[in-house]
Design a protein around this nucleic acid. Structure first.
Length: 405
DNA sequence: TCTGGGGTCCTAGGACCC
DNA sequence: TCTGGGGTCCTAGGACCC
């Protein structure tokens, strides 16, 4: 028996962070506004012209007015300032974004309960079992989001997630796009390959080297050619995607697999000269990670670190422990052990700590979240069992040791 | 004045076990 | 004694996404 044709929606909030800021500061409407840079420790910083910014931040979101000036997500703010020196910069206020995220998702599920979270400002919906026709449903969803938040969104509705996502981008902002299978050649094939979710800069360059620029060209590309360049698995996925084929289900529940905290320093730090500063930062990251674990009632069986050197090269180290841990001291011990296995001979710009292989969260009870973690404070040996290897103890020029201990 | 922070998934090699 | 395959776990790096 054939499965019934699916009906999937992708809903994407328009310039989400910037739009939330405009709700809070409506006098900025119509101006080029950019969200990015450092968190503003709770206080609402006044908007600052981009030209006055000093630091290592990137643009998180910009209003359409700022985009028109050439300012885009991921761009270094220092570079954005050259395009739009008078654009106004606001530090991100994540608590506010989470609040509006909760509001719009709650409004959507009253209409379409099968929702998959894709981050703070995006969702997929499985509309297959709903009766209403797609256009009416789309308009209802958009109206519900606007009523709940005062914000606009763009919506694509199609037979799968891939096409729904492409559709939601076709008419931004405040769009509603229905894509049927018959629309693929006319509306999807002319688009550049990078519009396919999962084709990033690397794959785009690889395809371009084969003379493939549009989704339509990819759809009819020689299979053997693609296999040689990308391997059988990825080649098959590329061809299917270009032909609008995507069988992924809408997944309504998923547990976190890892948690991490990282920070880029205001200036590059030297592993020896700035040892105590680095140690303080490391402890702070481990403390925040432990808080995050506690908030989820989870424990980690792997602990890892991430370093980024001044030249932007990144290394990671990871350690599997004897049992799950959640306490600061265990995370710290694991992180320090990882740090001993990495060359600390040049300046650093970033340090991060990661908790992986998370155990199932504690059960919710009728009386609220259980206070005790399943593996909470037991077995402090786990992270320290191998800590007595060469390199622990006295710091040397070759091994500056802990901010490692 | 380049290049944030938090995630997921994939690959690939070596260890180890059957 | 020789010659294997698989399967799983661990680790590091990288692509990609929001």
């Amino acid at each position: 028996m054939n499965a019934p044709a699916r009906r999937i929606a992708h809903l994407d909030m328009d310039a989400f962070y910037a739009s939330v800021e405009l709700l809070r500061q409506p006098q900025l409407r119509g101006l080029p506004v950019v969200v990015g840079g450092r968190r503003a420790n709770g206080v609402t910083a006044p908007p600052m012209p981009l030209r006055d910014y000093q630091g290592r931040g990137v643009v998180t979101t910009s209003t359409y007015e700022a985009r028109a000036l050439g300012v885009h997500s991921g761009m270094a703010i220092m570079r954005a300032a050259r395009h739009a020196p008078d654009a106004l910069l606001l530090p991100p206020s994540f608590d506010a974004y989470r609040h509006y995220s909760t509001l719009f998702k709650a409004a959507v599920v009253t209409i379409a309960p099968l929702m998959e979270n894709r981050g703070i400002d995006e969702i997929y919906l499985d509309l297959t079992d709903l009766d209403t026709d797609s256009r009416a449903l789309g308009l209802r969803l958009k109206a519900a989001v606007r009523e709940a938040t005062g914000l606009s969104c763009s919506l694509g509705i199609a037979a799968n997630k891939l096409l729904a996502k492409i559709g939601s981008e076709l008419d931004k902002p405040d769009g509603l796009t229905l894509l049927g299978p018959e629309d693929v050649p006319r509306r999807v094939w002319p688009l550049p390959v990078a519009k396919i979710n999962g084709i990033g800069p690397k794959a785009t360059r690889g395809l371009q080297a084969l003379g493939i620029r549009t989704i339509g060209e990819l759809a009819v590309a020689d299979a053997a050619l693609l296999e040689d360049a990308f391997g059988a698995r990825f080649a098959l996925w590329l061809r299917e995607s270009a032909n609008g084929v995507d069988r992924r289900p809408v997944v309504t529940e998923s547990a976190a697999k890892s948690l991490s905290r990282e920070t880029t320093f205001e200036r590059d730090l030297d592993p020896r000269d700035d040892r105590s500063r680095l140690s303080t930062i490391l402890v702070g990251l481990c403390e925040r990670l432990a808080q995050d674990l506690a908030a989820k009632g989870a424990a980690a069986r792997t602990v890892g670190i991430k370093l980024r050197y001044a030249d932007f090269r990144t290394v990671t180290r990871e350690l599997t422990l004897a049992g799950p841990v959640a306490a600061v001291r265990d995370i710290l011990a694991g992180a320090r052990e990882c740090l001993r296995r990495v060359p600390l001979d040049r300046r650093l710009r970033l340090l991060g700590v990661r908790a992986g292989s998370l155990s199932a969260p504690a059960q919710e009870t009728a009386f609220g979240r259980q206070a005790e973690l399943p593996f909470g404070d037991e077995d402090p040996r786990s992270a320290q069992s191998r800590a007595s290897s060469p390199g622990s103890g006295v710091a040397t020029a070759r091994n500056p040791g802990p901010w490692a201990g």
